[in-house]
Amino acid sequence: MNNLAVKATELTKTYGEGETAVHALSDVTFEIPRGEFVVLQGPSGCGKTTLLNQLGALEAPTSGDVESNGYKLNGLDDDGRTDYRLNTVGFVFQFYNLVPSLTAYENVALIAELTGDDVRKRSEQVLASVGLGDRMDHFPGQMSGGEQQRVSIARGLVKNPPLMLCDEPTGALDTETGIQVLRLLRSITDSGDRTIVVVTHNSQISEIANRVIELKDGVVLGMHLNDDPKDPGDVAW
């Protein structure tokens, strides 16, 4: 098995044309080994989310390519991208984006049904693993922000994806809840075969990452490794 989780090659994304064109990403190239907790960091507007969208095949690049877990994303059509997301990527969003008419269990089961049997067992297990074993029958409107984000993480995890992409996962949470969520995300990489990419503008989060990729104006400014990532509770928030 290839030890690389993600490989981006000369990735460029331009919105608009001519004088009004915005170069969100320019010739971005990097590699992410499997099993790492990676932080994509940079100021607002630097292209973090655009890059995350490229990694998750939510948008097509203007040029360049992404290889991820055996998929070459540039050549995929809509069905291919859907298939890639279904089998490879778990998403966590800042605002959770849960379906309000479904319970926590059902939000997770909705995705579990697409990816195999034992829907109930897998959904319950993954919810229990994020600490929501006793809140499964609650609707999003009956849960706190932290709980909703944990449901969102469980929803991403239930299909057992090799890659989790998280966009400002603590952006809507208070500090304490944010720490709990980061611990949870950090623990996901413990097995060593799952990679997490977290987009954030919060520089402290980089202290818990294995690898930090810094972006500015759509260009990779630099990438560094943390030999000794901290526990989220030990970071000075």
């Binding site: 998750g56 939510l58 809509d78 069905d79 859907t82 298939d83 997301r85 279904l86 089998n87 990527v89 778990g90 998403f91 969003f93 605002f95 984006n97 849960l98 379906v99 309000p100 909705l110 995705i111 697409l114 990816t115 929803r155 991403g156 299909k159």
Partner: peptide
């Protein structure tokens, strides 16, 4: 739209 977009991001096809 965000709900549907989220489903699409999580792997539900347009058809579903």
């Amino acid at each position: 739209s965000s709900e549907f977009a989220s489903m699409r991001a999580n792997g539900l096809s347009y058809r579903r």
